[in-house]
Amino acid sequence: MDYASLPAREIERLSRNVAPGAWAVERQRPLSTLLGSCVAVCMFDLHARVGGINHFMLPNMQRSADSEVDSLLSGDYAMEALLNALLAQGARKARIQAKAFGGGTIIETSGQSLAIGQRNARFARDWLQREGIPIIASDFLGPWSRKVLFVPSNGDAWCKRIVTSHATAEVIAREERAYAATLAAARPPGNNVELF
């Protein structure tokens, strides 16, 4: 399907949502996510016609008893996982470009939200620079939440800033808390699978 000719609203309807702590790689299907203080980085290789997006909550997280949860929510894991998945799909690091979004201040709690958004944005820029991946477009910080749409095959991305009402902020915060809680839920013994 040629997504270039479709309006953004139709692309959003057809998109696969990427939740906090997740990442996805596609060749055709558009990807979307809703951001508050989190950051999403879209990486793509136009020659290989493949791209992906991640959505991370914090730049990195300290190791705890549940290090699996920590790594899934952290930017350092999300960036490495996305890059490796793109390379596995035939992308070449020298051709990969990025677009990055988020780091907004949607809930002010003793100055913490602003610091988290700034740390996330700085981490994304620093990581991409260190890896030699150019950021060709970005929209960071500010008092907005953001809806991001991304078409992996051609690298098109749309970022809609959303003036954050208390209700919108609560929806985003609830989604982030719910995702973190599902990861933290105890898994039944004997049902764990370790991949190597």
Rank of each mutant, 00 (worst) to 15 (best):
Y3M: 08
A4N: 08
A4M: 10
S5M: 14
L6C: 02
E10V: 13
I11C: 00
L14T: 03
R16F: 12
N17M: 11
A22E: 14
A22D: 14
L31I: 06
S32M: 05
L35W: 01
V39C: 04
V39T: 06
C42I: 04
F44L: 03
D45R: 05
A48N: 07
G52N: 02
N54Q: 07
L58C: 02
L58D: 01
N60Y: 15
N60W: 15
N60G: 12
D66H: 12
S67L: 13
E68D: 14
V69Y: 04
D70P: 02
L72R: 08
S74Q: 03
G75A: 05
Y77S: 03
A78L: 06
A81N: 10
N84Y: 11
L86S: 01
G90T: 09
K93N: 05
Q97S: 10
K99P: 02
G103P: 06
G104L: 01
I106L: 04
E108R: 12
T109W: 07
S110A: 15
S113C: 14
S113K: 05
L114F: 14
G117V: 03
Q118G: 04
R122M: 05
R125Y: 05
R130P: 06
E131Y: 11
P134V: 15
G142S: 07
F150Q: 02
P152L: 00
D156P: 04
K160M: 12
T164V: 11
T164Q: 01
H166I: 10
I172A: 06
R177I: 13
R177Q: 13
A184I: 08
R187V: 14
N191R: 15
N192M: 14
N192L: 15
V193P: 05
V193E: 09
L195A: 11
